[in-house]
Structures are given as structure tokens and as C-alpha cells.
């Protein structure tokens, strides 16, 4: 079945997929099972790229003057905090698909999320380009294939006209311009927009907005983690000297030791 196209005059119902991840400054330690990270002392935050997705959704809704923005996450109950933050920024609704375990396997995550998206009106799914915990960089195009939507990944510039997106993305050594019909999945790269923060009014309003929780039925993983390890530490280096006088010593080290000159 071909999904129906978005008519330019219609409002757009937007779903934003977000993930709660360990903060980017986390010093990763391996848990006793040797297969996961040790959660002791780890702080969490909204995945940085998902902030661009939320902002883009709000801007599209503001521009069209109608429609809805629903944020959804597959994650732990504690992710309520990140969802409330998204509501405070301006999203209308939030849905928490609850699972206790760290979400690594994209096949199972996409299965759960796509099944849920199929139950709501949606002509646009916005995602971050990558969740900075598992670094899978694959959920958005997966969702697109499962939903029969168009897709552009790692988008740095996005325009919508007559129900068609024109997106720009960086590829190796060049910039690509891609057109994409709706319904669509767009994954957002840094630089797409400047995410707003929640203000006090937004935080108050968010308390009254709906945040639904549903237990997720996670299938068995397609990619099973057998072990997690830390990379070998870099051998200690050395200070070759102070100021411009140290340049000859550096050149010698690069030539004779590192053999890169």
C-alpha cells in the first residue's frame, strides 16, 4: 500500500523520536557482566541531536500554523524527565514506551517504534542523526522503510514547499541536495537550527500536557552484545619543550620517532 501524501494546505502531525542517553562527558566503565556499561554515577540527558529534531518539529508547526508535535521514546521510566523537557519546549504530547534494559539493538527498537507510529496520525517523523550512546546511526532510515515513508538522513538544512521537502546534507567532501516527498522521516544533524530552551511558562504548561506510558513488548535482539570493553589506553606521551624553541625537537620527533614527516 502506498502511504498517502501530505497535502500542502493540511496541518502536519509530527512524531519526534528521542532517546535518553548518558551525558556526553561520561567516563564509561564496564559493568561486572562484561557486556554493558556500569550505570553507577552516570548522569543522563536528552540525546544532543534529538534537540534539533524537537526544534525542527516546533518550527514546522509554527510555520504551518496548525498540526501537532508528539514526542516518543523507547526507554526507562526515568525518561519522563526528558519528555517533560520536550513538552516544556512546546511539544503537545509525549509517549513513553517503557523498557528497563539499555536499548542497543536497532531492529527491535525500530519494530516497537514503527508499530506504535502506525497507530497515530503522522506525516512526518523527526529524529536525531545518531544516539550518542550506541552510535548506531540507523533507526531513522529503518523506520522509513518499515512505514513506507521517504527519508533523508543527517540533514543540515530543510525546507518544505508544496508537500515536498528539500534537504541538504554533508557527504564526503561535498554537499548533497535531496528532495523527498511526504510522508517522510528526516534525521537531523547539528547546525540544522538553534534549539530553544524551555522557559518558565513552558515548564508550567508542560505539567498539564499528556504524558502516556505504555509497556513496550521488546522482541529478542537481532544483534546480541557478547562483550563490552575499553579501548587500549594511549601510551604516555611527553612534552618536547617550551615555546617556539621547542619546534626543532618536535620536528625531530615527528621525523625519527613517529615517522610521519
Amino acid at each position: 500500500m502506498r502511504p498517502s501524501c501530505h497535502n500542502p494546505q493540511d496541518p502536519m502531525d509530527i512524531v519526534v523520536c528521542v532517546k535518553r542517553v548518558p551525558t556526553s562527558d561520561t567516563a564509561v566503565k564496564i559493568a561486572a557482566d562484561g557486556k554493558s556499561f556500569d550505570p553507577a554515577g552516570v548522569q543522563y540527558e536528552l540525546n544532543a541531536y534529538d534537540e534539533f529534531a524537537i526544534e525542527q518539529a516546533l518550527q514546522i508547526k509554527e510555520k504551518l500554523g496548525a498540526g501537532s508535535v508528539t514526542v516518543v521514546t523507547l526507554g526507562p521510566k526515568d525518561a519522563q524527565k526528558e519528555l517533560r523537557d520536550a513538552l516544556a519546549r512546546g511539544a503537545d504530547k509525549a509517549v513513553l514506551l517503557v523498557t528497563d534494559k539499555w536499548v542497543f539493538d536497532s531492529w527491535s527498537a525500530a519494530t516497537v517504534l514503527a508499530n506504535w507510529i502506525k497507530t497515530v496520525p503522522c506525516q512526518l517523523v523527526l529524529c536525531g542523526r545518531q544516539a550518542i550512546d550506541a552510535d548506531n546511526n540507523q533507526l531513522p532510515p529503518r523506520l522509513a522503510a518499515m512505514l513506507g515513508f521517504g527519508c533523508v538522513t543527517e540533514v543540515g538544512k530543510l525546507e518544505l514547499a508544496d508537500g515536498v521537502f528539500t534537504a541538504e546534507r554533508d557527504i564526503e567532501g561535498a554537499r548533497e541536495v535531496v528532495t523527498c516527498r511526504t510522508p517522510a522521516v528526516i534525521s537531523c544533524q547539528k547546525g540544522l537550527n538553534a534549539p530553544r530552551f524551555a522557559n518558565l511558562k513552558g515548564i508550567m504548561a508542560a505539567k498539564k500536557k499528556p504524558l502516556d506510558e505504555v509497556q513496550a513488548a521488546m522482541p529478542e535482539a537481532a544483534m546480541v552484545i557478547e562483550s563490552m570493553s575499553l579501548p587500549p589506553a594511549r601510551a604516555a606521551g611527553r612534552i618536547v619543550g617550551n615555546g617556539a624553541d621547542a619546534v626543532p625537537a618536535l620536528i625531530a620527533a615527528l621525523r625519527n620517532e613517529a615517522k610521519v614527516l
Binding site: D135, M228, S229, L230, P231
Partner: peptide
């Protein structure tokens, strides 16, 4: 099986394909 970086290379996982 495959090895990939996670947490921007702060750790690596070894995975086995079950499908």
C-alpha cells in the same frame, strides 16, 4: 560477529548476529 565502537569510541562492543 562484529566489533564496533560505542560512546564515540570510549568503549567497544562485540556483537553476534542472531538474525
Amino acid at each position: 560477529t562484529a566489533r564496533k565502537p560505542v560512546f564515540a569510541g570510549k568503549a567497544f562492543v562485540q556483537v553476534r548476529a542472531a538474525r
